[in-house]
């Protein structure tokens, strides 16, 4: 089943010297449901940012919260927790 991965580099002691390198692993593909944030309803409280298990919600330069679909797994916590119901879950179109 598993073969040697020719692209891998093997460090002494399997030490990983690239902090935060799971960023290369885009988990957005896991998503079945897609959260859609309505900026007009958003009160910028940061609740979604706080509760996202992925750290996939960020604040942009304008102070708006945006969802990073590269990593969002579509769990729906943000929509469930949003105090003003500014996030709705839609079926992911693949």
């Amino acid at each position: 089943m598993a073969k040697s991965d020719n692209k891998l580099k093997f460090s002494t002691g399997a030490v990983i010297k690239e902090p935060g390198s799971t960023l290369k692993n885009k988990t957005g593909g896991w998503r079945a449901m897609r959260p859609v944030l309505d900026q007009s309803k958003c009160v910028k409280c940061g609740t979604c940012w706080m509760y996202c298990p992925e750290g996939a919600i960020k604040k942009d330069d304008k102070g708006n919260f945006v969802i990073d679909y590269d990593y969002c797994k579509g769990c729906g916590i943000c929509a469930n927790e949003c105090p003003v119901k500014a996030i709705r879950m839609e079926l992911e179109k693949k």
């Binding site: 692993n25 988990t27 896991w30 998503r31 298990p53 992925e54 996939a56 797994k73 769990c75 916590i77």
Partner: peptide, 17 residues
């Protein structure tokens, strides 16, 4: 963030939060 995106926890994982 010090525990960054791309980890393989289940969707909605409480521990990841």
């Amino acid at each position: 963030e010090f525990f960054v995106s791309g980890h393989r926890a289940c969707a909605g994982c409480g521990a990841a939060i």
